[in-house]
């Protein structure tokens, strides 16, 4: 039984090592920031969220005079990182990038480990995300109307792909279907690229896709039927918005910086200023151009209002679509 004893000893040592890693205690300070700041990125490296945070960081570092440590904490459509942030110390040294979806779209649909409207300081929204419904360039559907009319005459024949269930891209299509009184079939994929690939391969007729659709359109492989932005996009001035086509929906997803609730207002203001400066930096503007997102500056107060107003709006949308009866998470 000597072997088992040794084994137990080994396991104990491993656990101890782990405990040491956890033990890096952080202390708050008046002279914020006097040490590096950690920002979680809730999505995988190489994606648009990741690239946006990495594009902001250099100018923020310059403005704050401290280095910024970016850590990818993926999972749960961005909710895992927010769940950890909610329990972090509000000392301004732990922040997270994240989307407005993490506050008012996902928590409405399923229970998340934080209180969407109470767990965070909503510091700054820095970019608006674009999305669109696209088809293959040689598709018989030339316009949005073509697709809708075909779906009306052939119920359940039109299949479209999205990056996942409950995403704004999914909601856009379902709101449209509900309004037009038609039925089309949603095929969720894991990520925007796979969903676009499905259109290229002819496995679905249309794709409701996030920013990466732009590359496919510019290279002539796909055609836009409708963009989901509030106004027409500068890159594609001829593509109509869903609002223009009579669908009462636009994708209001923004990229933003969150902190835990209860942060010092002076620290919040410093971060606001730093992000605001970073949004003007060339490296960030290049990111926006390459990833088809629109730079924006929405400070703490305004952004918090957007999220608080957004909550009941989202609840209503999902109730109308029959996806929920009551919101899955308590907002406060």
């Amino acid at each position: 039984m000597n072997g088992l004893k040794k084994a137990m000893f080994v396991l104990f040592t491993v656990i101890l090592c782990g405990a040491f890693a956890l033990g890096s205690v952080q202390t708050a300070s008046a002279a914020w920031p006097d040490k590096p700041i950690t920002i979680f990125i809730p999505f995988a490296a190489g994606g648009s969220m990741d690239a946006s945070a990495r594009a902001l960081a250099p100018a923020m570092e310059k403005a704050l005079g401290q280095s910024i440590v970016l850590i990818n904490k993926t999972g749960g459509a961005g909710t895992v990182a927010l769940g950890i942030l909610a329990n972090a110390k509000p000392d301004g040294y732990t922040l997270s990038a994240g989307t407005s979806s993490g506050i008012f779209r996902i928590p409405v649909q399923r229970k998340v480990p934080y209180k969407p409207l109470a767990s965070f300081t909503n510091i700054f929204a820095y970019a608006a995300v674009s999305s669109a419904t696209v088809v293959k360039a040689d598709s018989v559907f030339k316009t949005w109307k073509d697709l809708v009319e075909y779906a009306r005459q052939n119920p359940g024949q039109v299949k479209y792909s999205t990056t996942g269930s409950g995403s704004p891209m999914h909601v856009a299509m379902e709101v449209a279907a509900e309004q037009e009184g038609i039925k089309w079939i949603h095929i969720p994929y894991k990520g925007t690229m796979p969903s676009l690939t499905a259109v290229l391969g002819g496995h679905v007729q249309a794709c409701s896709a996030g920013p990466k659709f732009a590359g496919m359109v510019q290279s002539g492989q796909m055609r836009i039927l409708a963009v989901h932005t509030q106004r027409r996009m500068g890159e594609f001035p001829n593509a109509p918005t869903m609002l223009e086509l009579g669908v009462n929906y636009f994708n209001d997803t923004v990229f933003s910086i969150f902190g835990p609730a209860g942060m010092d207002p002076a620290v919040v203001e410093k971060i606001e200023d730093a992000v605001s400066e970073a949004v003007d930096s060339q490296i960030f503007l290049d990111f926006c151009k390459n990833f088809t997102t629109m730079p924006m500056k929405m400070r703490h107060r305004e952004y918090t209002k957007l999220l608080e107003d957004g909550w009941p709006k989202q609840v209503k949308i999902f109730q109308k679509l029959g996806r929920i009866k009551e919101p899955a998470t308590v907002p406060r």
């Binding site: 190489g46 994606g47 690239a51 690229m193 290279s219 290049d286 990833f291």
Partner: peptide
């Protein structure tokens, strides 16, 4: 996917073009 990110950051969109 990460490398594609590098392409895009540099302004090269991978694809037929």
């Amino acid at each position: 996917a990460v490398i594609m990110g590098a392409f895009m950051i540099q302004g090269f969109i991978p694809g037929p073009l």
